[in-house]
Design a protein around this nucleic acid. Sequence first.
DNA 1: GTTAGCACTCTCATGGTGCGAGTGCCAACC
DNA 2: GGTTGGCACTCGCACCATGAGAGTGCTAAC
Lengths: 354, 354
Amino acid sequence: MVRRVRRSSGPLDLRSQAILRAVIEEYVTSAAPVGSHALVDRYRLGVSSATVRSVLAELEAAGLLMHPHTSAGRVPTEQGYRYYVESIVDSVPLPPVEQLMIRHQFGQVEYASEHWFRLAATTLASVTRAAGLATPAKPTSAHLRRLDLVSISDRLASLILVLREGALRQVLITLDHPTEQDELSAVANRLNDLLDGRTGLEAERILGGLDAEDPATALPRKVGERVVRALQEFDGAAIEELFSDGLLNVMAAPEFAQSEKLRRVFAALENRAYLAKLISGVALSGRICVFIGSENPAEEMADVSLVLAPYGQPGRAVGVVGVLGPTRMAYPQAIGTVRFVSGLMNELIDHLYA
Amino acid sequence: MVRRVRRSSGPLDLRSQAILRAVIEEYVTSAAPVGSHALVDRYRLGVSSATVRSVLAELEAAGLLMHPHTSAGRVPTEQGYRYYVESIVDSVPLPPVEQLMIRHQFGQVEYASEHWFRLAATTLASVTRAAGLATPAKPTSAHLRRLDLVSISDRLASLILVLREGALRQVLITLDHPTEQDELSAVANRLNDLLDGRTGLEAERILGGLDAEDPATALPRKVGERVVRALQEFDGAAIEELFSDGLLNVMAAPEFAQSEKLRRVFAALENRAYLAKLISGVALSGRICVFIGSENPAEEMADVSLVLAPYGQPGRAVGVVGVLGPTRMAYPQAIGTVRFVSGLMNELIDHLYA
DNA sequence: GTTAGCACTCTCATGGTGCGAGTGCCAACC
DNA sequence: GGTTGGCACTCGCACCATGAGAGTGCTAAC
């Protein structure tokens, strides 16, 4: 028992690496423990199964593989996946055919920004056959670009806010007196002049300058208050939404046949606080992040892996796209796809800030 | 084998009804076949287990109960649930405490219509402990209420459409020439005058009247085209979105432990065509609809039940709220809750059309 | 250092067995 | 005649034993 786990035992020689790769790739497709015979049969390793066995034993001693039981084949450990991922992370472009296909799909919704995120999730799901995730780009702080007031009835109006960051907000306002559209438009114009490009805090200060006694500024003040509140809510909100697609793909994986594990994963995905932390971490890192099993910050996600990439403009608006799958995941493909889609999202966002 | 199923064998006497109710209610909570002893133990039926057994045999002959195997208790058939539901459908108000709680929650988002549907789904899920479903109220045909053009950069603008029905649309427009916000506002005003209250078809006709050669109307024509397209897309779209919450509750049910059945259900929920059909059916009926197991129009839903109610204004805008759960569902509570929430949604929508 | 051979271990599928829950029937009872 | 207690009967299910098969680790030979 004493010398069982000998982690980080120096770099591996090429043959060991090749065998580790083979084990992982075989296990990713078969989902069953891999034996030495299966390896020599299916991979051109140039050595016999006995030799492979001794290498497997070394890899196990190094903590990269494990043994479900004596007479079973080997299964990668999280460290094994980690080693594998580090060794391939910089060299897996998505095949051009698929790139083209994805670009084509995004081209069709290029002018409807509200569809980008859903499409990103759907695309990631269908290409990687895992679950696709995408959050809208959330502005670091919301700046008002324009507001509009639309009369709904005598005493009810809809206030529409357009943010510089591209997001849209609609709130209803009850009016103290019956008010015509013309008057509403005048108020909207006045507030537009005052508040264009302002954040919630700035808007609050500016509106403080209005005469609180003057009945003529009663409506602008009331509307202004709602504007400020909406902007501040926007700043304070965690992630707006998480678009996901293909959760079914993950459900289909044999390791989730008994659904308890999966339930915990789904529950974690509905936990906004967890998501917010995760996403801000990825956004700050500025690069693709791979969380394998228990590397995930949340315990519930210990049985799955995440491949996430940030997109957007640091300091202005950032979002995250990625995939979620079993730890037994096709990492090279996942990383390539996520990298490509995040690049695409960057291009789209850049348009908005051109 | 010949006389096995003797459906619709006249009305049941009161004792049989009581026993059917008891079997269903017991099965709903225990999820296990119910035997005659369990019934006399837990329900004050005033007869012995032998008598209960003979009644159970009659109910089985009538097709309302079934026998998984000789030595097991009884399980309700879909017809059994159907009979049960018909007998209680008109008399199950939601407890006032819960009514108050729900009203309070809706009060907090009263002025943010985009949150209503999500809240409806969440509320239904948490009260019924099944999955909550809600679709936004989809206008029968979209009428433009107002449009706005916001400059994003030299040659890129955002077109914002407000529909009379309360929905919002944003599309990006590329401009042929660098254009200032002032000019965009002027175009927006002009189009607002022309198109206020119009449907896509009407707008198309009106814009046809503009001089196609006049360079001064080039921009209005271009924007107008996008407006028409957006309105028509809106009319043609199936359901915008299906908000759902609490799918986890359904996953937790023992009958879905082996997740294959559930996968099919989830897949059906992602099938827009199926949803559209289902929802329009419910909307047309104008009343609460209960689909039990294979009564569902889609085969994939044969293992679950739906309780759905329409809300909104017939002929103007209608949506659907409801719950999805195992056929072994607490129907009285589900029906009461769905009825209450749909009433609440009606009140909210009425505001918009006041 | 590599390989073939071999004994050993452990899982999984298979089939037999006993228990218990629940029924259906029957004779007795009110 | 409806209701009841008693009793034989039927299955499903949990339990155990068994055997086949897969895969290992070790060792001796190359």
